[in-house]
Amino acid sequence: MSTRPTDAQGDDELLRRYASGDDDAFTEFVVRHHESVVAWVTRRIGSRPEVDDIVQETFMSVMSSASNFEGSSTARAWVYGIARNRIARQFRRRTAEPATFESLGELGLRAGWGDPEVEASRAESIAEVHRALKRLPDDAREIIELRDLEGFSNPEVAQILEMNVPAVKSRLHRARLALMAELNSEVADG
């Protein structure tokens, strides 16, 4: 159900044309993706001076690697993966597995599963959800941002995070439950 700011096949074609020497194709590719990459990098690291550098390095890498793009996923996911690696390199962020493990059942209980007292059909505003999202651990926040805010498919998220699809689905499920738990704790705290 993703909303695509660009056409994936068109992206592939632009990269092929650029690899064959058409500089205008590279410009068109940057125009298509620049704004969303800037927005995503900003969401990941905040409004910092490094955003422009990371975006620039990302597209520089696109330029030097266009001929190697294999099309195993979409070009958009490929670009986000490059940007993510640039962020990791710049801030030496760990992009490995979450530090803590809670069983799905325990997580579900914190999220309100099976709790007859939980408020029915509680409707959170987007602002409430985004506030709760910011309080999640980075790995949980990142996967929700990619899947639900950026609209990537599970295979695309798998490419960006360098994981397999079942691992993406598992992490996403846990992240959404953690978000529900966070919203529940917000209600409980008043």
Binding site: P5, T27, E35, E124, I144, D148, R176, L183
Partner: peptide, 28 residues
């Protein structure tokens, strides 16, 4: 509730953004 949360998250899904084409062209 779970479905409603996902719907709320995705209601902010980015639509085709109006790109800042000048900045992008300058970078390219």
């Amino acid at each position: 509730e779970y479905g409603a949360l996902v719907t709320t998250l995705r209601s902010g899904l980015k639509s085709a953004a109006q790109a800042d084409t000048d900045k992008a062209r300058d970078l390219a």
